[in-house]
Design a binder for these strands. Structure first.
Lengths: 200, 200
DNA sequence: CGAAAATTTGACATGACTCAACTGGAGTGG
DNA sequence: CCACTCCAGTTGAGTCATGTCAAATTTTCG
């Protein structure tokens, strides 16, 4: 459980997108920060500046924001091997809209804004890596907009259950409802309806 | 109106994100394709492979897809200085889900998949450029999801009108309705309601 | 001018929300 | 070990936002 253990999975994830020699890993390491957040702690808070791109090695976090009425809206969940943070705040180093909140004890590897800009200079492969990571995130985000437009609440929930079966176990229902853009009551009735149909 | 005229605005756009010497521009130019689409033509069609990242110099296009019921859903509009294409299809060179359809005569600069990979090797600044472009697109996409979750149809329309006043003029209402995720009838009634209030 | 496309209108249907009450754990402390 | 509280989830009644459908009207453009 030593923090040293966090770097290998991080580099494994890098190597899925770019070639990286042992020497290059050694070169990058000094710019990486390892950290463990406890359940309930915040990786990033609204109105603060998001200082890190955060890679989750283990654990679970949710990204949410509070609308003008004080209602929470869950934007995304972050699990093992995902990046989290308020990218808008990070990229422009301005106050964040989003909160990143740990639902479990969460072990991460982080890169600060200054270090990341430095790494981009040091090794252009990092630029490629983040282009690919963000490109994937963007493609998923577009697909989510498509689903929000063409599926009913029930269909979106079924898609979510099929895509992230683990999360159904690990996340309270009201957060899943919020992620899907519906109320907890309505999600409850959808689940009820599905269960009823399965019984027949 | 000669096609030669398309490269300067393209490079101007690049220079908003990266430094680029005259020599570097000359080096890139052979990998760029200039083209003009007529109103009604398709830059990319569903089930084809999206072969180009397309930069719009002038004109207007919409990206849409057909759901399983044959209903059109507008994903985005692309105007001057925007990039369009089915990024998912382009990145993986697999059949596209989306159509990119010109609403006006549209002049573009295009980079093919092979040429872009080549350019990434040739000049790592291109990797940075596209990271930044896609990063912005992703941030906007996230903000759109936020708006879809926390604003009413009317509020979304008002936001759209404020953000893209030009598009209100240039795009048929039923496409705007589709972009906002509502029916043309409901958008019509929203506009009616707003007009009524302005009269008082 | 005439046909096709876009928009509007209105009656009606429904998916999803609100609110308030209730149920049922999971701590917590006496 | 019970009583108490807190939080998540459920249920049901009533409501509202938005969708559907079909017809009428306006605009566009060949």
């Amino acid at each position: 459980m030593s923090k040293i253990a966090l770097l290998p999975p991080f580099f494994t994830s890098l190597r899925r997108y770019i070639d990286l020699s042992k020497e290059e890993e050694v070169e990058l390491a000094p710019y990486l920060k390892q950290r463990t957040y406890l359940k309930g702690q915040y990786i990033c808070q609204a109105d603060d500046i998001c200082r890190y791109q955060t890679f989750i090695v283990s654990g679970l976090a949710r990204t949410f924001y509070l609308d003008t009425g004080g209602v929470e809206h869950v934007i995304s969940f972050g699990m093992e091997n995902w990046w989290v943070g308020d990218l808008c705040s990070f990229a422009s180093q301005t106050p964040a809209d989003f909160n990143v909140h740990c639902l479990e004890k969460t072990e991460v590897v982080q890169i600060s804004y200054e270090n990341l800009e430095h790494l981009y200079q040091l090794n252009p492969k990092m630029e490629r890596f983040f282009r690919l990571i963000i490109q994937n995130a963007y493609i998923q985000s577009q697909k989510r907009i498509v689903r929000n437009h063409s599926l009913t609440a029930r269909e979106r929930f079924v898609h979510f259950s099929d895509t992230y079966p683990q999360l159904i176990q690990r996340v309270p229902q009201y957060m899943i409802a919020s992620y899907l853009g519906i109320t907890k009551e309505f999600l409850s009735s959808i689940r009820n309806q599905i269960a009823k149909e399965l019984r027949n």
